[in-house]
Design a protein around this nucleic acid. Sequence first.
DNA 1: TTAGGCATGTAAAGTGTTACATGATTTG
DNA 2: CAAATCATGTAACACTTTACATGCCTAA
Lengths: 194, 194
Amino acid sequence: MDVKTLCLGLLSFRPASGYDLKKEFESLFKHFFPAGYGSIYPALADLATAGYVECEEIAQQGKPDRKVYAITPAGQSAFSQALAQANPRHKLRSEFLATIYFAELMDADQLHELLDNRLAELRDAIAHIDQVSNGDRDLPAGARFVAGFGATLAAAAAAYIEEHGAMLLKDARQDSRRAKRPRRAAQTNLETRV
Amino acid sequence: MDVKTLCLGLLSFRPASGYDLKKEFESLFKHFFPAGYGSIYPALADLATAGYVECEEIAQQGKPDRKVYAITPAGQSAFSQALAQANPRHKLRSEFLATIYFAELMDADQLHELLDNRLAELRDAIAHIDQVSNGDRDLPAGARFVAGFGATLAAAAAAYIEEHGAMLLKDARQDSRRAKRPRRAAQTNLETRV
DNA sequence: TTAGGCATGTAAAGTGTTACATGATTTG
DNA sequence: CAAATCATGTAACACTTTACATGCCTAA
């Protein structure tokens, strides 16, 4: 399942332009399947070439034509097949964890910042998901499941960092260049919560 | 932080061959930063060209020379800089969740299989992490944090699927072509646990 | 008047995945 | 006897990311 297939799937709900699709990617998909214009526009062009979608151009004043894509019967069946495909993957690549792995080589301030940033991102993600899923009262079951999944995992990640972040700090280097400055880290979420 | 940088980081602990590094990637990194030979070998070649590592070739009988790479001072400082870099990302791309998003377009058997497969993968991941981290009693703090993080999140994901998987099944299509067969799904983890 | 939203795309660069290619030794 | 482990790498392919390129309208 690549961006192209996902676009096709979204078009199976309703016709949309590339711009519209980008907004959908920004809302729920943002945290588990991000995509930018650079992926979406070429994907739509490919889908049109394959005959899976049809494009209606709507002229506008002062803006480029709005190109609204609609799925075709061929597209519907192609998407069904894609859904039925055996093994959808769940790929994670975390530079955050890779960095933490080398915690002993970092000084305490660096580590603090790293953990705090990640915590902030996780809280933003949770807020974002809540906002998106509360905005739409009757979200379909699939969307609700996905939103709940995302929020739950983000909460678990945040809780883990809060509970276990301290164990990294103990071992971390005290960087002499920084030790004399008042500890900026003292005001962080981490310190106040752990 | 790409595969190249991570290889450099691993070499900062001890010298190793590409084959050795692959094994390290298979152990703890497997679930949050996977890499294959196709990434590792070119990475080592690039690092050597950049002067960040040095290679000692050890002749062997019946096997290609074993090339053991060791980090250089230049490599050490390059890696330190990479660690200090502000914003390590945490990238997720889940075809699993993308598929679930379209749950209403799938029939119940398909969904069951999908959820069960994912549950099985999560349990394997947890078992794998436990095995790896119990194998080594005095794992450094960074590694312990990462292992715990992975196991915790996998457990949270599994729990979420067990608790909320049923809400997808209710809405799912009953596929008439399959309805008459004895329900294979009846023996799954999901059914017995939810 | 400035920032943000609307609206399209292209091109190059960067990365990673998969398949290919080879072959001896050890373990069950 | 078969499968796994040891051991290296290349080449093609796929895919995404980022930067570039353009330009009007609306709301604060």
